[in-house]
Design a protein around this nucleic acid. Structure first.
Lengths: 166, 166
DNA sequence: TATTGTTATACTCTATAACTATA
DNA sequence: TATAGTTATAGAGTATAACAATA
């Protein structure tokens, strides 16, 4: 019973706007990705992540780390991407338990095809009303929040109520 | 007419952080809502919206407006909420075509039960690393973006490219 | 034993189209 | 004809648990 938690109006407004903005943005982006490349947002994220890598590869576990999913969900998505010829899976050389996912040329090509429209949507929807300084400020605010969330263990979703004792 | 669209590093960082932050936040919030009230986020949003209304009611169409969904999706969710006794549906008095959704006492009770934990998660995850001024700044940045998105027609998701017709 | 990944399965959610009824 | 909502249905996505293989 420490703090009767509540949000002041400013916090509430920021929270609601954050949810609405990203919800609308995500919706628009998903539509664009689906139309221009038949990709879901998650699939795009996975491809983009692989494309960013110098080797074009990542282990399954590393991929999962960024996209929050369950392992089975990642396996499902990786399976779809592989079936579409956009990635290849192979056992990792150093650790036989691991699977290394690698983006194919077709994957890179699709990424390149989809990216301009993606950027266009983000640019036109998210950044249009923001000045360069605004964006800098926004980035400066979000970065520490991201760090905080990353370092906060997921079970803290229900911090005061542990189920397994404690 | 392509303006060879691209995002500068600052924009890219802001965009990625925005996606990651809200993704993590949403995940945490959904978990809390599910555990404490067996509600999905959408259902919570609908309940909260009804709870905020002075009458405790909204027409289906008005509800849909805020939650972006297809009408059938809203019907589905409203059906679930009604089956759980959290809302009631009745034909609107003034327009026989419309349906008025009203939150029940049980709905309000559930809302009250779930809200503290919800706020706790948002507070601890999103606002913890932000000062009061930071939040004010964030709200000030997001509000115009929200307005811009609201006023931008959805089909603009792919503005320059009609179909896939290159 | 712990970790990595897959499979099977069940469930939730969303979208499309056809349909009813009111305006 | 246009609007409000429902239904049927199909598909995508996600999570859990059991499983196999390697460390």
């Amino acid at each position: 019973m420490s703090d009767s938690p509540s949000l002041d109006p400013v916090q509430l407004g920021a929270y609601f706007d954050l949810i609405e903005v990203t919800s609308l943005l995500r919706h628009a982006v998903e539509q664009q990705l689906r139309e221009s490349g038949d990709l879901s947002y998650v699939q795009f994220q996975l491809l983009a992540r692989l494309g960013d890598s110098p080797t074009g590869s990542h282990r399954m576990t590393d991929l999962a780390d960024g996209v929050v999913y369950s392992r089975s969900g990642l396996t499902y998505q990786a399976g779809l991407l592989e079936k579409a010829g956009l990635v290849v899976r192979a056992p990792s050389p150093d650790d036989e338990r691991s699977v290394t996912v690698t983006i194919t040329d077709a994957g890179r090509a699709l990424l390149a095809k989809v990216l301009p429209g993606h950027i266009e949507v983000v640019s036109g929807l998210l950044f249009e009303p923001l000045s360069r300084d605004d964006v800098k400020t926004l980035a400066g605010l979000l970065a520490p929040v991201r760090e905080h969330m990353r370092s906060t263990p997921p079970r803290s979703a229900a911090p005061r109520r542990r189920k397994d004792g404690a």
